[in-house]
Amino acid sequence: MTSEHASPQLISAYLRSPQALATDKVWALEGHLEGCPTCRDHLSALARVQDPAVMSLLDDVWAGLEPQLTATASAPRRRSAGLFSWAAPTTVPWLLAIIVVSFLATLLDVLQSLTGDISLLLLLAPLLPVLAVTAAWSPALDPASEITAATPRAGMPLVLRRTVATLAVVVPTLLIGGWATGAMVAQWLLPCLATTAATLALGTVWGVTRAALALSGLWAGVILVPALAMSHMPLALRPSALPVWAALAALATMALIVRRNTGALLHPQR
């Protein structure tokens, strides 16, 4: 017998008659066989030669068991846990809504029949991620927010994960829209990032819902409504304003980093 495996003689003797072997040897061998597939293969190869009756019985049992084993193998379809470790379970309808809204805005822009000089897509783009971020982290929209708030993962990392998941949908959607209407990428991307970061940064003070409402109201009042009323693009969305948006995005991101440990964002106060 080698130091690692049982010798063929021992296995063969065991097969002929376990009673003839010393009890401690049988015990040690069986213990080894349980954990060693190589020796089990030796055993079954020898058994085919020495004891065909046992092997045919074993084959019968396997034939009977196999259908049942394959049946239990097909477990019910599972929602992938990986997806929801990024996107909040409540955001899916909101993300679909965002896709629809940006598609319609793009369509109107391309047709240019109703909008004239202005680009609806550019006017709406900064609002879209704000909506989705709110949906991902608003106690009013997330039924499980109360238990989520008491878990260790509730905190800035989870908020950022959910924001990234939102942007992963919003950015490609707007990319297609921007390509169709011929807008520059930076023209919608920078305002988008600025409003998203500002929502989260203000959210650490007021809570995300209030921050999102305030920012959306501000956007609608200062930019969206005047632009629609006067039918021309506001200065803020012209290419010359891009450095300002970049600065705002950087400022809001810095504010968010500074306030990353404050809990206000994470405490749904109903």
């Binding site: 599972r78 929602r79 846990a81 470790s85 379970p89 878990t151 260790p152 509730a154």
Partner: peptide, 11 residues
């Protein structure tokens, strides 16, 4: 799925 999600949130 729900209890799994909660287990994930609870690290």
């Amino acid at each position: 799925e729900f209890v799994e999600y909660m287990a994930w949130l609870k690290e």
